[in-house]
Design a protein around this nucleic acid. Structure first.
Lengths: 210, 210
DNA sequence: TGTACATCAGTGAACGCGCGTTCACTGATGTAC
DNA sequence: TGTACATCAGTGAACGCGCGTTCACTGATGTAC
């Protein structure tokens, strides 16, 4: 059915404009930050008239929210697969989880900033909240599995642990693990820093890991 | 000499426009985030023609950098005074330092976002780097004083400790301690969360505090 | 103390620009018969 | 299999807007004599 896409040009109909716009937005955010992204430019770089995006998104903000949503999805997937249900043991899996967090922030800076710095109000987009919760849920259940390995009488609250882990990972990602200039030079890699931090923290919880 | 400022209006000359513009910028950032701030609107809200700011700032970016600089100065001062040279003892002073960090992020959200989310490239503004270093320096020397209380043979590296503390505080501030909606609900206050986190962390370092 | 002049810090009008958004439209695709 | 028609996903021209920036200017202030 190659006559559906004659040559390599596109006909009057783009075919998958919605997707193309999201990708274009992502590129622009990667180049100039979430601030620099404009609806018009996304259309232009998708090779389409400035009115076309309105067939797929109510406005600029909705496109941005869609990008952030995709970010949280990808993020949740990455975390889920890194955690791998706690195999071979929670301590080891937990360490992988931390690495995955930083790897995501570094390898997908555009998604990361769409998620956390774009000014999209999560509360305005219920489906965004849902998928953001899914990402947090991975951290949460990993924390639960981890604290469950502690002796029952001195078991720290999993919620608290998950917030601490999240904060430390997010803090390191924001301050040290981004491509931008202006980030402070570290005497070690962000991964090492996080790993050391988690090690100290877990020891403080009374949980020596393998 | 009240004839210098007749009535409460201003004459042709504003008198302290530079300062007024910084304050106006701060207000705007507080209202709409660093993205929403425009040069023209700052001028307008300082009651001055849109060309006037150019007498004091090369361009919009320079004004933003000035705001960020002021932010780091205020921040450094707040941290310095909270640390109070480690009185009465490093552990107690360290706890105050953490509170001061979060208090700043909460009470001066406009400054905080000008510093960390405005997209000002610190590396492009040497005087900004300098004052940012001063703020970090407080964290650094506090960490040094703190680890110095540990037995010499098991003394953790102060640089690492300072980065961990900074990351955790920044992470908690960014994720939980901001006025914006969309921030996740916590089962405790950000201060309690940070305090608990630091307690666990320090215990992990082998430093039980007073 | 008064006057001339230099400097400073504003004005206000104008500009070109890109943005977000709307509108009536039209080419391409899918479907019923 | 062919034809009529509905629907969909684009076009392109136009709009009003606010922004950043420039320019020649002018009122106010400070200073030399």
């Amino acid at each position: 059915m190659s006559w559906k896409r004659r040559g390599r040009g596109r006909g009057y109909h783009h075919g998958n404009l919605k997707e193309a716009l999201i990708v274009a937005a992502l590129d622009l955010i990667g180049e100039k930050g979430p601030t620099g992204f404009t609806f018009a430019e996304a259309a232009r770089s998708a090779g389409v008239s400035p009115a076309a995006p309105y067939r797929h998104f109510r406005d600029r903000d909705e496109l941005l929210a869609d990008v952030a949503k995709r970010g949280f999805e990808t993020f949740a997937d990455a975390l889920t697969s890194a955690w791998d249900e706690g195999r071979p043991d929670p301590a080891r899996a937990f360490e992988r989880l931390g690495h995955a967090y930083l790897a995501f922030a570094r390898e997908e800076p555009a998604l990361y900033s769409a998620m956390f710095e774009s000014g999209v109000a999560i509360s305005d987009h219920p489906e965004l909240r849902e998928v953001a919760d899914r990402a947090y849920g991975v951290l949460r259940s990993a924390s639960e599995a981890l604290v469950a390995t502690a002796p029952a009488k001195s078991r720290p609250p999993a919620a608290m642990v998950s917030f601490h882990v999240w904060a430390m990972a997010h803090g390191i990602a924001s301050l040290f693990a981004r491509g931008d200039d202006g980030r402070r030079m570290l005497p070690m890699s962000p991964e090492e820093l996080l790993e050391a931090g988690m090690l100290v923290y877990l020891r403080g919880l009374g949980m020596e890991d393998a």
